[in-house]
């Protein structure tokens, strides 16, 4: 669906319009690999209003003492943080959506933990088809019963090499082709606009599985 070049053009145009008031499209920044070209990706960070527990460091005693009336004594609120990224997958010739959910300390959440706090609504089970919400959640994957590939699994970010969760691209390919066909808009526009529109449609698809509001 996308060549790497087309992917890059579409992403950069999305990043240029980062202030757009659309929860799926706003806030994306284009990043390059620090050393090599052609490995760029989009990313953005957000904060949920859900609280998380921090790991206690019991082995440490309170070592220092600072008394200062001008420091606001603010209760520490550990909100759940979300990092999202869109990177290119060569085998599928498709963008792939990556996600990491973590505490203020950078401690990542496991999938069961993420799904557990469904107030996050991070992953949207297909509740409307009756047997929705019926997902098998393991440490490394969210599996739709009967499907061959997991919907979400753990993997490495292709540019950063850090572990993230990602949406498997196998199903988006076909669905995107249908959307592009139905949309029609992509045909009329010029080449650059066409790719951007395709990426927007792809984000729309991703939005079906993942809550993209930030």
């Amino acid at each position: 669906m996308f060549t790497r070049g087309e992917f890059e053009i579409a992403c950069k145009s999305l990043a240029e319009n980062a202030t757009i008031d659309n929860p799926q499209l706003k806030g994306w920044t284009w990043r390059e690999h620090p050393e090599y070209g052609g490995l760029g990706y989009l990313e953005r960070s957000s904060t949920t209003t859900c609280r998380s527990q921090s790991t206690e460091t019991e082995e440490f005693l309170e070592e220092l003492c600072e008394e200062d009336a001008a420091t606001l004594d603010t209760p520490s609120t550990n909100f759940i943080r979300i990092w999202q990224s869109i990177a290119y997958n060569v085998s599928f010739q498709m963008p792939v959506f990556y996600l990491s959910v973590y505490t203020n300390e950078g401690t990542p959440f496991s999938l069961p933990h993420i799904v557990d706090r469904t107030s996050l609504l991070l992953f949207r089970p297909r509740r409307d088809d009756g047997d929705g919400g019926d997902f098998e959640v393991s440490k490394y994957a969210i599996q739709v019963p009967g499907a061959t590939m997991p919907l979400v699994s753990q993997g490495e970010h292709p540019t950063l090499g850090t572990p993230c969760y990602y949406l498997h691209p196998c199903e988006t390919q076909g669905a995107l082709a249908e959307l592009v066909e139905a949309d029609g808009r992509t045909k009329d526009d010029k080449k650059a606009g066409e790719n951007t529109r395709k990426l927007e449609l792809w984000l729309l698809l991703v939005g079906n599985a993942v809550d993209l509001r930030v």
Binding site: S54, E56, T57, E62, E63, C65, S76, T103, N104, G106
Partner: peptide
Amino acid sequence: NPQGKLAPRLADLAPM
């Protein structure tokens, strides 16, 4: 730290 003490914090990345 999150417990409101002047003490170090901890990030645990083992699960991933």
